[in-house]
Simulated scan of single mutants.
Amino acid sequence: MRIRCRKSCRRKINLSRTASVSPQIPRKSANSECPLSVPAAGPGAYGLADVRFIARIRSFVRSDYRLPAAIVKSPSFNPASIYNLIADILIADTGSPDTAALLLQSVKAAGDGPVGDGFGCDVLRLDQLHPQLSGNKLFKLIGYLQDFAEQHGAETLLSFGGPYSNHLHALAAAGHLCGIPVIAVVRGYEHLPLTPTLQDCQELGARLIFADKKTYARRYDPVWRQQLADEYRALVIPEGGSGEPGERGCALLAPVCAGYDEIWLALGTGTTALGIARGLAELGSGFSGQLVGVNAVADQGALQQSWQRQMPAGIRWRIIDNAHGGGFGKTSSELIELIRRWDARNLPLDPVYTGKLMWALEREISAADQAGTAVPRRLLIHSGGLQGRRGAPQLSES
């Protein structure tokens, strides 16, 4: 379904003109062959002592997590395709639900970094789920895709993000794969060259609408969001996929996290961590470990205060607030060197989230080595976002 911008829309909601939309790309059929091929990295490929298998697909996606087949949003949209998309992404290319993907890998010290023999953790490689729809972004979209299928009147998905937004990139890919029109409200100006991220979004069929700084600041305004929903007949998704539906999808990761002493992940909105925490709280076996979040935002303790209100009872947690490197998206020569070092071990990181996550983890392990403390069993969640490396000139060729 093609979305047309009414002449009054800029006057009503103060948005700049929409960018041109590339020709429509054929949508992926729910029954088409899955293009995913998860590389089977053997021992040594990541400097690994061993390779572990993650839980089978049904530990990620509950067998009853299906959408109402009777609901049809547009001629090209099949609600069942959402479940099939998730299933296709989370299994290997054989197409069998009983096939486990090689996504959980055990990383040991390699002698080329600042940490000693105490370094060791499993890395959940969510970056390997899919070439475009990867990382925690997929899971944050699951709840919204479910709500879209169940919400009468919504014909498009609309959300917000910056020029290198991982969220918008994933949303455009999900819309392309599921046959759902997507509108991306982008912080920026139409006359500027498109970033590689926005070029991808456009090629995936997403419509780009640019908003200046003042207009974009209204993205949390419920009145403005309702105007957007009415104007475009859209389900409006908060920036970054935050909110209860995003947490609902991320809770599906909880069974993989259970059994670890510490679960480490980078924080932006904190949606993924809250979702995992709520999933862990619902597990019958209980969870005795600790959730460790590395804040990528210099928020003056705002996330700390929010978690004190929102974190489920019984879940131990802590936030590391001094590893953002000066603020969201800020880089340094030290961070770039760390990323290149892990590139050499075939564990790619991004400078916004996972690079700072690994920086904080290395720092903590180094301090623990010097103190001679016991080594906990850690899981590091790789949240993807590698397409955002294109925004760092120092990494653009790697």
Rank of each mutant, 00 (worst) to 15 (best):
residue 224 W to Y: 15
residue 232 Y to Q: 05
residue 292 V to T: 04
residue 294 V to H: 04
residue 286 G to M: 02
residue 316 R to T: 07
residue 275 G to F: 09
residue 242 S to K: 13
residue 269 T to H: 02
residue 306 S to G: 05
residue 259 G to V: 05
residue 244 E to V: 13
residue 224 W to H: 12
residue 309 R to Q: 12
residue 266 A to R: 01
residue 241 G to H: 12
residue 282 E to R: 05
residue 237 I to T: 09
residue 236 V to E: 04
residue 250 C to M: 09
residue 293 G to V: 07
residue 282 E to V: 00
residue 228 L to Q: 12
residue 307 W to K: 11
residue 250 C to W: 00
residue 285 S to N: 04
residue 259 G to L: 04
residue 225 R to I: 14
residue 244 E to S: 06
residue 250 C to E: 00
residue 260 Y to K: 11
residue 229 A to C: 04
residue 319 I to C: 08
residue 294 V to F: 06
residue 292 V to S: 03
residue 233 R to Q: 13
residue 298 A to F: 04
residue 284 G to R: 02
residue 314 G to K: 14
residue 289 G to H: 03
residue 239 E to C: 09
residue 277 A to F: 00
residue 303 L to A: 04
residue 240 G to R: 10
residue 245 P to G: 08
residue 313 A to V: 10
residue 321 D to N: 15
residue 225 R to G: 10
residue 257 C to T: 05
residue 240 G to D: 06
residue 307 W to V: 11
residue 252 L to Y: 11
residue 313 A to S: 14
residue 316 R to F: 00
residue 245 P to D: 12
residue 300 Q to A: 15
residue 256 V to H: 02
residue 260 Y to R: 15
residue 320 I to C: 10
residue 320 I to G: 01
residue 278 R to D: 05
residue 231 E to R: 13
residue 286 G to K: 00
residue 277 A to E: 02
residue 301 G to C: 14
residue 248 R to W: 10
residue 317 W to Q: 04
residue 308 Q to R: 11
residue 244 E to R: 05
residue 233 R to G: 06
residue 232 Y to T: 08
residue 315 I to T: 12
residue 258 A to D: 14
residue 297 V to M: 01
residue 272 T to S: 15
residue 321 D to S: 13
residue 290 Q to C: 13
residue 234 A to N: 10
residue 315 I to L: 13
residue 263 I to F: 07
residue 276 I to D: 08
residue 291 L to N: 01
residue 248 R to C: 07
residue 262 E to M: 00
residue 307 W to R: 15
residue 230 D to S: 13
residue 293 G to Y: 07
residue 318 R to Q: 14
residue 231 E to T: 12
residue 227 Q to W: 06
residue 243 G to W: 07
residue 291 L to E: 00
residue 263 I to W: 08
residue 261 D to H: 08
residue 312 P to A: 09
residue 299 D to S: 13
residue 260 Y to E: 11
residue 230 D to E: 15
residue 246 G to C: 10
residue 271 T to C: 07
residue 244 E to H: 02
residue 320 I to F: 12
residue 275 G to Q: 09
residue 279 G to K: 03
residue 258 A to S: 15
residue 275 G to S: 11
residue 284 G to P: 00
residue 236 V to C: 06
residue 304 Q to R: 14
residue 233 R to M: 09
residue 305 Q to G: 11
residue 245 P to Q: 09
residue 296 A to I: 06
residue 246 G to H: 07
residue 257 C to W: 03
residue 247 E to L: 03
residue 280 L to Q: 03
residue 298 A to L: 13
